[in-house]
Amino acid sequence: MDPIGVERVQPVPWAEGDFWLLRRQNSPETPGRLGGPETVGAIGHWERAWQGAEVWEAGWGTLPEFQGGGLAAAAARRLISVVREERGRGGHPAVHAFPEVARAASNGGCRKAGCTLLGQPDLAYPKGNPIRSDDWYVDPRGPARSEGDW
């Protein structure tokens, strides 16, 4: 049984009309900073220099009314699949996510998405705001997991 649609998570490219989602994710009721039939959050990846190499950094947020049902982890697994395809076309050899250490749900999503915890670097997010983060890692060159392995 999948009451909130985890099995139907489908990433779609960011579009000009999606700014409302960014505003909503940065509202007081959404604990975080920062389409399809129903938008429940956002996930993305971008290039970043990390420890002397170019890697993909991933980040996501789920709207409050959809949190806690595994949607972020499902979206992260889909994103890793997309990055794995990009890797086949010359993409970067690593995907990292850097949630704040205190964000148990975000860190749980990384774990459920198949990421490996590498450490706790001191970063700044947003720029100028020091935070302690967990460094979660996935090697997109590795074999894809079947849905049952997650």
Rank of each mutant, 00 (worst) to 15 (best):
W60V: 01
W60H: 03
V95M: 08
P13N: 09
R87V: 06
I131Q: 02
S27A: 15
M1D: 12
F19Q: 13
H96P: 07
A76D: 02
R89Y: 12
A49Q: 09
L79D: 01
A72Q: 10
G148F: 06
R111K: 13
A73P: 09
G69M: 04
N26V: 09
V12S: 04
L22P: 10
T62I: 15
N129M: 06
P93K: 11
L123N: 10
A144V: 08
G68E: 04
G68Y: 01
L79A: 09
S146P: 05
R24T: 14
R111Y: 03
R23S: 11
P130M: 00
I131A: 03
V40E: 05
G128Q: 07
G36Q: 12
D149E: 15
G32K: 03
P11A: 07
A113F: 10
A15H: 14
V12F: 08
D122L: 13
F98A: 11
G17S: 06
C115V: 02
G5Q: 08
G52W: 00
Y137I: 00
E29T: 14
P11L: 14
G17R: 14
C110H: 03
R33Q: 06
E38S: 01
D18Q: 07
G108K: 00
P31M: 08
I131M: 01
E54T: 15
G5F: 12
G44F: 01
G5M: 09
G142M: 00
H96K: 02
N107D: 05
A104I: 13
G70N: 02
R103T: 05
V101M: 03
Q10F: 10
P126S: 05
D2V: 13
W20F: 15
L118N: 00
E85Y: 12
V55H: 07
G17Y: 08
R145V: 06
Y125I: 08
L22I: 15
Q51Y: 00
T39R: 08
D2A: 13
G35C: 03
G5N: 06
T30E: 08
V6C: 10
W46T: 07
R8F: 11
